[in-house]
């Protein structure tokens, strides 16, 4: 089954077109990275999937249900972009932040009980932030915050994880480690992962599929195909494509 099915979606902010004629299907077990330059509509696409903004055209369905009528948000874990100063001074502990993820499985009156906290601990263990449980969110580094948000997204054990620029606030060494964690979550726990990155050079090594977005969907397919895709060659020129694909680029081997 396709977890996400995007059909011919257009989003406009007034006269400005953010996205148009996007069609994309993401099936269970996929690990998809959405890449593209700044302003290419990556975040808009996420917001559209999460039903945070109205579609101008087209439709999106989640688990076979139209996103506008979708209610089982506990099946989707969302990791928003981290910006370091946003939560500075916010008095919440990591445990409290992770626990707030549980709310997606609840309806009014939303209460969190003792048994819910075992889920919180499990999610923190999976991501490896147990030792941070009583720290304040504002005291953590970007990489630690990112892990906390990942734990929060996973607390309800969702099938699908959406991550918006997960590595933006992380230094390169931690980034590799973070991608490795994601890879494990994808392979060991069988979660479907969709993430946004503006930095295609690293993600390629970990994601199974790439979607290149520039208001329109330019490319969608496996990493290997990406490197030999004529659309991408047209887009970047062979040299840049070579840089993105790096050592493993089949193109280089051909030369």
């Amino acid at each position: 089954m396709n977890l996400i099915e995007i059909k011919n979606v257009c989003v406009r902010y007034g006269p400005i077109e953010a996205l148009c004629s996007i069609s994309l299907a993401i099936s269970a077990g996929d690990y998809v990275a959405i890449i593209g330059p700044n302003g290419s509509g990556k975040t808009t696409l996420f917001k559209a999937i999460l039903n945070l903004l109205p579609l101008t055209e087209g439709s999106i369905s989640l688990y076979g249900t139209d996103a506008r009528r979708f209610t089982q948000w506990n099946k989707i874990g969302y990791v928003p972009q981290v910006s370091r100063n946003l939560h500075k001074g916010f008095p919440a502990t990591v445990r409290e932040i992770v626990a707030s993820g549980i709310l997606s499985a609840k309806s009014f009156p939303r209460m969190i009980f003792g048994k819910d906290y075992s889920k919180v601990i499990k999610a923190m263990e999976t991501v490896g932030v147990c030792d941070l449980a009583e720290r304040l969110i504002g005291e953590l580094s970007g990489g630690q915050q990112q892990r906390v948000f990942l734990a929060r997204a996973m607390v309800n054990d969702p099938d699908l994880l959406l991550l918006d620029e997960p590595t933006a606030a992380i230094d390169p060494a931690t980034r590799e480690q973070f991608y490795r964690t994601l890879r494990e979550i994808n392979t060991q726990f069988g979660k479907t992962i969709v993430l946004i990155s503006h930095d295609a050079s690293h993600i390629g090594h970990f994601a199974a599929k790439l979607a290149y977005l520039d208001k329109h969907l330019v490319f969608f397919g496996g990493f290997d195909q990406f490197c030999i895709s004529p659309e991408m060659t047209r887009y970047f020129g062979p040299h840049a494509q070579h840089l993105i694909c790096g050592q493993h680029c089949p193109m280089k081997e051909k030369q």
């Binding site: 999460l50 945070l52 969302y78 919440a92 932040i97 939303r110 969190i112």
Partner: peptide, 16 residues
């Protein structure tokens, strides 16, 4: 819990 989630991050609260 709702107030907490919204105070922390309104958009994320919507996603929840």
């Amino acid at each position: 819990h709702e107030l907490f989630a919204i105070a922390f991050e309104e958009e994320y609260a919507r996603v929840l």
